[in-house]
C-alpha cells in the first residue's frame, strides 16, 4: 500500500493507482475529458492537471497518467492548478466551440472569455474513440494519422474500414462531436437529424448536413458516397 497526501488528507491506495483515482476516491473533483473508466489513461486533454511537490520543485502533472508514489503531496485545486485548467479550457474552446461538454466545463470553471483565434474543429485529438475502438470493441478500425497540425483521426485512406462494425462506440464517447448522429431513436438521440427530416433522409445532400459517421446510414441504409 502507498500513502500519499491529497490536499492535506492522507490516503492509502494500492500500488499502481493513479493520482486521479486516489483523488476521486477522496471525493475531490478533477475535471477530465480524455479519461474514461475501462480505457487506458492517455493524458491528452491536460484538464486533470494537479500540482505535486513542494516549493520551487512543485510542478504540474496530468493526474490521470501519474502513478501514486509514497509520500507524494498533491494539490488538486491550488491557484496555479486552477489557472492552468482555465487556460486549457480556453484553448479547447478556441478549437471546438460547438461542443456541449467543453462549453459546460468552461462555464463551470468561470471561463468567461476566449482570447485565441477561433477555429471550428470537430476533434480535440483526445484519442477516446481510438482507445474505445481498440480496447473495448477490439476492432482497431480508427487511429491517428499524420502529425503536427495535420494530425487527424479516422480510418486508413478515409475509406470504410473492413474491421468497423458500425458499433458507434467512437461517437458515443466523443466529447467534441456529440451533435453527430446518435442513431435513430428520436427520444434517445441528441441529434436525430436523419429521423426528423421530412421526408426522412432521402436526399443525400441533406444527409451530409447531419455530420453523420454512419456509412451507410443505419436507419435508412442510404449509402453516403
Amino acid at each position: 500500500m502507498i500513502t500519499l497526501t491529497i490536499n492535506g488528507l492522507r490516503v492509502e491506495v494500492e500500488q499502481g493507482t493513479t493520482v486521479l483515482e486516489a483523488a476521486r476516491f477522496l471525493g475531490f473533483p478533477i475535471p477530465t475529458l480524455c479519461h474514461m473508466e475501462g480505457l487506458s489513461p492517455y493524458g491528452a486533454c491536460r484538464l486533470c492537471v494537479v500540482e505535486i511537490g513542494e516549493g520551487p520543485k512543485a510542478k504540474l502533472v496530468s493526474s490521470c497518467t501519474y502513478p501514486a508514489e509514497e509520500g507524494l503531496r498533491v494539490r488538486t485545486a491550488s491557484a496555479r492548478v486552477l489557472r492552468a485548467r482555465k487556460m486549457v479550457l480556453e484553448l479547447l474552446l478556441a478549437s471546438c466551440p460547438q461542443s456541449k461538454v467543453i462549453q459546460d466545463l468552461a462555464s463551470a470553471h468561470q471561463v468567461r472569455q476566449q482570447r485565441f483565434r477561433q477555429e471550428h474543429e470537430d476533434c480535440i485529438l483526445c484519442g477516446l474513440c481510438v482507445r474505445m475502438c481498440e480496447e473495448q470493441m477490439m476492432a482497431k478500425a480508427i487511429g491517428f494519422r499524420g502529425r503536427g497540425s495535420t494530425r487527424s483521426l479516422g480510418t486508413p485512406f478515409d475509406i470504410k474500414s473492413e474491421v468497423c462494425r458500425l458499433c458507434g462506440g467512437c461517437i458515443y464517447v466523443c466529447p467534441a462531436c456529440q451533435l453527430r448522429c446518435t442513431y435513430t431513436e428520436p427520444d434517445k438521440a441528441i441529434c436525430g437529424g436523419c429521423a426528423n427530416l421530412s421526408p426522412p433522409c432521402v436526399e443525400k445532400e441533406r444527409f451530409d448536413d447531419m455530420m453523420c459517421y454512419m456509412n451507410p446510414c443505419v436507419a435508412c441504409e442510404i449509402v453516403k458516397d
Binding site: 478500425a141 494519422r145 499524420g146 480510418t155
Partner: peptide
C-alpha cells in the same frame, strides 16, 4: 498489425 497502425506510421 491493424491497418490503421501501419497507416499511422506511414503518414507520421
Amino acid at each position: 498489425r491493424s491497418a490503421v497502425d501501419v497507416y499511422s506510421v506511414a503518414t507520421f
